[in-house]
Design a protein around this nucleic acid. Structure first.
Lengths: 119, 119
DNA sequence: CGGAATCCTTGGAGATACTG
DNA sequence: CAGTATCTCCAAGGATTCCG
């Protein structure tokens, strides 16, 4: 269905719009750092994240956790104790995502070295 | 240098801070769509991008192009004609990046299907 | 402890007009 | 044609307070 010669040996849509979808979530502030923190242990508490990322406000942290949960990237478990205890963990999907981002990581390392530094 | 048992069979830093660096650029509005447009042809003109993405303002398009160029992701070639002609193209690094984002694409597809849809 | 509600602040995006 | 220069505006982030 795509016959134009100049497009044949080109990787079409190398960067698909699909990515925009996940970008709209991961692109938000702190989202990646939160996910990263959650990779360090099986479960992580609200206050632990705050301790790891002190600059984040609880407003935003709370927002992000909701959004990530809503997207199925993290799981939330509430213990009805006093004081209350809440644990967050990554879903399998987030772990898969992490693998992919590792590749991106390696690219960033390389890219940083090769960067023209024209300034 | 990492001996704690609970961390042994965990991929540490699955999501590195490194990614934040590229994220701070790609996360900006239109950045990905611009790159995507540039994958379609060897060279692309300013007005062609605008035509492909009509909703973008030239202010923002101009900003993004500068930023992407500064990061070594795109290349700019100016023809001193009247009217002036400017062509943009991807650098090798951006093409490599595109490959990686393809993997992310595939993940998004899968992830979208498996999404809990709890609402 | 883990948030929600509230208010405040800012920078990034958009529209418009102009220029080499 | 390919931008730059201004201006405006609003959503997203931050600080603080309070609550179950």
């Amino acid at each position: 269905m795509e016959t134009e010669p100049e497009k044949e040996n080109r990787v079409r849509s190398q960067i698909e719009c699909q990515v925009d979808e996940i970008w709209s979530i991961l692109g938000k502030t702190w989202a990646l750092l939160i996910l990263k923190k959650l990779t360090e242990n099986e479960v992580t508490r609200f206050s632990e994240i705050k301790k790891a990322i002190p600059e984040i406000s609880n407003t935003v942290l709370s927002d992000r956790l909701h959004q990530l949960e809503e997207q199925g990237l993290i799981r939330k478990k509430v213990y009805a104790q006093v004081p209350i205890r809440v644990e967050y963990s990554l879903t399998k999907q987030a772990i898969d995502l992490g693998k992919i981002l590792e590749g991106l990581d390696r690219w960033v390392i390389k890219w940083r070295k090769e960067k023209p530094r024209k300034k």
